[in-house]
């Protein structure tokens, strides 16, 4: 149960965002990358994480944001620290960028990576696995590949649950995962990995047979229970996303998003 909760982030609500076409939901991810990727000014990047945060609340996914709070805090802090040290590293003194520029770049990068985490969280909160598969197929990913991705998604909570059970059982037998050197700690995971693997293999053969029995091996056109249609709201949201991307690209082309030394 705990495993199921940790992996499945989908929030079952009927909000405007949940009703969007799966490809438009993936469009939110793509628009996030395309708009802020080339922008190095933190003030221009900042609206992206703010907007994504608001959308998370609108989707009723504040609980997911709370669950990911340590990551939402650690990612920008680690990124800012790293780039404030590494920006311009190795350049000779004459060509070295000013310190203020390094700080600006580090802050913009921290906000960008925060936006990527938020957009993933939003997508996982509003998209079911079946919709994700449908979106991949719509983008031209072969059926068998998108099916494999969906199947792996479905199996993760199952294997995670089995791994956590094995850990609990081994702990009850006195195996301590938190003591000793790194190598000693790593070695103690062997009695966890082996039973999880064997359990997975036992399922594999049955799964392959079940798939074959349902005609997975046939090369005919696939039918699906999930079939989303584009609605006017999808076109509106799609147009809004395209406008945001265009605005950011124009800002970049006009030089607003760039720092003195370039990327």
């Amino acid at each position: 149960m705990r495993a199921e909760m940790r992996v499945n982030l989908y929030i079952d609500r009927d909000t405007f965002l949940h009703r969007l076409h799966p490809q438009v939901k993936l469009g939110i991810l793509a628009a996030t990358f395309a708009s802020i990727y080339a922008i190095d000014r933190p003030l221009l990047v900042a609206p992206a994480p703010v907007a994504l945060g608001l959308l998370l609340f609108a989707a009723g996914a504040a609980g997911n944001a709370r669950r990911f709070a340590p990551m939402l805090l650690a990612v920008p802090v680690a990124t800012f620290t790293m780039w404030s040290l590494f920006y311009g590293y190795g350049a000779n003194a004459a060509a070295a960028p000013p310190r203020s520029e390094a700080m600006e770049f580090a802050a913009a990068m921290a906000l960008k990576l925060e936006s990527f985490v938020l957009s993933s969280l939003l997508c996982l909160s509003i998209t079911r696995v079946e919709e994700f598969t449908e979106a991949l197929r719509g983008l031209g990913v072969p059926y068998r590949v998108s099916f494999t991705v969906a199947m792996a998604f479905r199996l993760v909570p199952l294997f995670l649950g089995s791994a956590l059970s094995v850990v609990t059982a081994q702990r009850a037998r006195g195996l301590d995962f938190s003591r000793g050197s790194v190598l000693a700690r790593l070695r103690r995971y062997v009695p966890v990995i082996v039973p999880v693997f064997m359990g997975a293999l036992r399922r594999a053969d049955a799964m392959a047979m079940a798939l074959e029995a349902r005609g997975f091996g046939r090369r005919t056109r696939r039918a699906s229970f999930v079939r989303s249609r584009l609605a006017p709201r999808d076109l509106v949201v799609g147009a809004a996303l395209a406008a945001v991307v265009l605005a950011y690209l124009s800002a970049w082309a006009l030089g607003y998003g760039r720092l003195g030394g370039g990327r």
Binding site: M151, R154, L155, L160, R203
Partner: peptide, 21 residues
């Protein structure tokens, strides 16, 4: 089909052990 299942199993095992440990 069997190799497709093993691909999914390899992916799920990797992701399942990635998250909690």
């Amino acid at each position: 089909t069997r190799l497709v299942v093993f691909t999914a199993i390899s992916a799920a095992l990797y992701a399942a052990i990635l998250v909690p440990f």
